[in-house]
């Protein structure tokens, strides 16, 4: 069982993850073949701004975003998502394993730093959990499934944190860590974690603001 989790299941998870994402991209573009009229048309060029004007514009438009309504959550969610992607990629242990098996590795962060970043990430998870438990407006749309998804995301980091500090039974924690990572990879394309991909794909549907390809596509 150890061998399966450490060996084949890793490749299976990555294959499901990548093929699942490709399938979702393919399906999305197949479903949104139609194009609609959009404004502004391509010929209209936007006004050129100087660097100072651009910064001022960005700061001013921040007031119209979630930054204004919920600054704490905006910061926490940004940190959460950035660390969720960056910490595993630039983790020393992962890069060593990559180097061992493929002979290539990325630049990696010192472990004392990733240790702190993981802790910050877990604090963000705790913040989300607290919101779900205590804010009535979040509780109104929360199901058991939401807690499960939060657990799926938090588990690799929690077990990774335990493994780094070698708390509890090291081998068991490591096996759970690998398993948790694989479960997360497999679930990403097919659950609400799919917003990892669809956050960007939905930009093809939104006209004018934060849009790709002028947001012309419609379902």
């Amino acid at each position: 069982m150890y061998d399966f989790i450490q060996g084949q299941l890793v490749s299976i998870a990555f294959v499901i993850f990548i093929l699942g994402l490709i399938f979702q991209i393919f399906k999305f573009f197949k479903l949104t073949k139609k194009k609609e009229w959009s404004y502004p048309p391509g010929e209209v060029k936007r006004e050129k701004k100087t660097a100072g004007q651009w910064v001022a514009f960005c700061l001013a438009s921040l007031n119209g975003t979630l930054w204004k309504t919920d600054p704490l959550l905006t910061v926490v969610t940004l940190v959460f998502h950035v660390f969720l992607i960056l910490v595993p990629i630039f983790l020393l242990g992962h890069n060593i394993l990559l180097d061992q098996s493929w002979g290539l590795s990325l630049w990696s962060l010192p472990e004392s730093i990733t240790d702190i970043l993981t802790l910050v990430f877990l604090i963000c998870v705790a913040f989300f959990l607290g919101r779900r438990l205590f804010l009535s407006r979040v509780r109104a749309i929360t199901t058991v499934y939401d807690y499960l998804i939060l657990l799926i995301v938090a588990a690799p980091f929690l077990t990774g944190y335990f493994a780094y500090h070698q708390w509890f039974n090291y081998d068991t924690v490591m096996t759970l860590h690998i398993l948790a990572g694989e479960v997360m990879l497999i679930t990403i394309p097919f659950t609400k974690l799919g917003h990892m991909l669809f956050f960007f794909l939905y930009r093809f549907l939104i006209g004018n603001e934060y849009s790709f390809a002028r947001g012309e596509r419609v379902w």
């Binding site: 150890y2 061998d3 450490q6 060593i96 061992q100 493994a163 070698q166 090291y170 081998d171 490591m174």
Partner: peptide
């Protein structure tokens, strides 16, 4: 170091023979 240690331990693991830990912290 890594190639020498991990390489040998992995072959033992694959043969299901007694060997040290399979993970970094071992």
């Amino acid at each position: 170091f890594h190639n020498q240690c991990i390489g040998c331990h992995t072959t033992y693991l694959k043969k299901n023979e007694k060997t040290g830990s399979r993970y970094c912290g071992g």
